[in-house]
Design a protein around this nucleic acid. Structure first.
Lengths: 119, 119
DNA sequence: TCCATACCTGCGCAGGTATGCAGCTATGCA
DNA sequence: TGCATAGCTGCATACCTGCGCAGGTATGGA
């Protein structure tokens, strides 16, 4: 197995075969980037709080989210815009109220995972 | 249940009781922050690649990680310093070679989770 | 002693991102 | 028609973070 790209094939290795294993372990760069982006969305305490609230109590209005998290309305709106653009949440309009919910399967299971150790 | 803090108790709610549910769902602020920090460590493609390599192929030397990921040595070293400070990885020195491995339980299961959908 | 290797650290730059404020659109009600 | 509410957007600022470069420390061998 010669998985080391040509541009760095001349560099000295410590454990030669392990480098190839590592390259195989990392896999596709696009895949890694996609997951990094996903983690990035959860990396902000405000956004994570919003997502936890949405995930565990179901559809919630923007201003209710603002009250629950202590954020102001525009901040909530902007966070939701980001999450909406990434396909993580979706909003349903009912009169002048928009209720959001989490729709991304992977993010949902990550939220489960991080809510699990609360007890 | 009156979980809404005093400083925002006067604000109008859409679904009053759901706000309290949401606050309960979010839980302790320190806990949310801790998880956000964890996600933050995985939010960079380079760091995630390093962690995937370490997690799936076991202890690896710094320069081997550099070759496997295409990063230069200082970049790898700096990323590992961050992860070490957070208690995610640990390095074992053997002569002049330092081999790192992932030691954080939660991060390990997150890595499993994101490696799972590769197939 | 001298040198090469393996790794670490500090510094500065460039790019991204959160945050607050002001203002806008749209809906519902009188 | 007029007004209040729910939500969205744009902009400016400050901050954070990744990244490369130069240089430093420690180990091993000649």
């Amino acid at each position: 197995m010669h998985l080391v790209p040509a541009d760095r094939a001349d560099r000295r290795t410590i454990d030669g075969h392990r480098v190839c294993d590592a390259i195989a372990a990392i896999g596709d760069a696009a895949h890694v980037r996609a997951w990094a982006d996903r983690f990035s969305l959860l990396a902000d305490p405000k956004r994570l709080a919003l997502l936890l609230a949405l995930h565990r109590t179901g559809p919630l209005a923007v201003s209710d989210l603002a009250i629950a998290t202590g954020m102001n309305d525009p901040a909530v709106s902007q966070a939701l815009r980001l999450l909406r653009a990434a396909g993580v949440v979706e909003g349903e309009k009912e009169g002048r109220v928009v209720r959001y919910r989490v729709v991304d399967r992977d993010v949902r299971s990550l939220l489960e995972h991080c809510a699990a150790d609360v007890g």
